[in-house]
Amino acid sequence: MNRLIQTTLTMLFGALMASNIQAHNPRFHEQNAEKPKCEAMNNSDLSAKDKQDPVAQALMEQCAQSQSATDGSSDQHAPTDSNSSQPNSSQSSNENEHSSDKHH
């Protein structure tokens, strides 16, 4: 009987500790996560920013990731016809621009 109580208490304590460690797991925020609104970058003066600046690098990195994720998901459904991908061409050029900026 004592062993049963001990086991139950140990399991409860373990579960409590595990939930504490998972207190702020980023996965909990996935459902409500916003996507970066990178179109705002086009109107900003980012081009005037120092490309070595970590903030500028982080912005470009974030938007490049976002863009590649968008392209990846759209590629799964996109037809192979090159004309049909025309509307995304400006975004792709942006991505290339961001990617090349990262290496400066």
């Binding site: 980023p26 925020h29 996560a33 970066p36 990178c38 903030v55 982080a58 912005l59 974030q62 990731q65």
Partner: peptide, 23 residues
Amino acid sequence: RLPELTPEQYQILTARGDKDQGH
């Protein structure tokens, strides 16, 4: 770096969006 961010830059930097768990 927070004090120098515009609202637009803040939104981009803080969005979890398509970010993986790698960070």
